[in-house]
């Protein structure tokens, strides 16, 4: 499978970086609510990144950050049958008057559960035996089969050096399909010349954490 439009590392043409920053975290009340809905419901109801990646390329490129979150919530929840598009459309009519407030659910039990899950502890650890050790050379598979994966296009088919074993994590490609396959994750360092060829920028490298099954040994 090729890459989606979200996989933009190394693409040209996006221009200069607008580093001006007013340090405002949210620019509208709806951004606060969309952020909160995603954060507090994320683990149970939706899978945020795949839902964002499913947004069509044109919409993806022209939408603001929290618009993408809102679209991902809407389409993810509709796809999973949690709500229907008809419900969303008909409910929206109730709010064309800007002063009208949304319904609330102030159930203390659910509130506790959500906040405890998010803020109380480190998550579950997995164990597993790493196939590679620091100093090993590895090749990233050039073909990626999963619908959702975390191998950026620009490292596919490239040679890297294992720097460290980061731990064992559920392979995200399958976790988003509801299947738990814990695998070692490695920090892999790629020389800039391996990724981009000889460049005027000179020395440097990119380091990425990759799951075991993205890699093959290179002797």
């Amino acid at each position: 499978m090729a890459s989606g439009v979200h996989d933009i590392g190394g693409l040209q043409g996006f221009g200069v970086i607008d580093s001006k920053d007013d340090e405002t975290i949210f620019h509208a009340e709806w951004e606060r609510r969309v952020f909160g809905m995603m954060i507090t419901s994320g683990h149970r109801m939706i899978s945020m990144r795949p839902d964002i990646e499913n947004i069509d390329p044109e919409t993806y490129l022209k939408s603001s950050y929290y618009e993408l979150w809102l679209i991902a919530l809407e389409t993810g929840l509709v796809d999973r049958g949690v709500i229907s598009q008809e419900e969303l459309t008909s409910r929206a009519v109730d709010f064309v008057e800007p002063a009208s407030a949304p319904s609330r659910n102030d159930d203390p039990g659910l509130t506790d559960e959500v906040l405890k899950r998010r803020y109380s502890q480190r998550s579950k650890r997995y164990s597993g035996t790493p196939r590679f050790k620091p100093g090993d050379r590895v090749l990233v598979h050039s073909e990626q089969k999963a619908r959702h994966t975390r191998v950026p296009r620009y490292v596919r088919g490239k040679l890297g050096l294992v720097q460290s074993v980061r731990g064992v994590y559920e392979l995200i490609d399958l976790k988003v399909e509801g299947v738990s396959v814990p695998e070692p994750v490695y920090s892999i360092r790629f020389d800039a010349r391996e990724l981009w060829g000889e460049r005027k920028e000179g020395n440097g490298s990119v380091c990425i954490d990759l799951w075991d099954s993205y890699l093959e040994a290179q002797l």
Partner: peptide, 22 residues
């Protein structure tokens, strides 16, 4: 987006799927 966010939150709150306090 401001309208759609309200519609979405209302539906999820009414179904007991989000906590507004959280």
């Amino acid at each position: 987006p401001s309208i759609r966010a309200k519609a979405l939150e209302s539906l999820l709150a009414e179904k007991g799927l989000v906590s507004s306090l959280a």
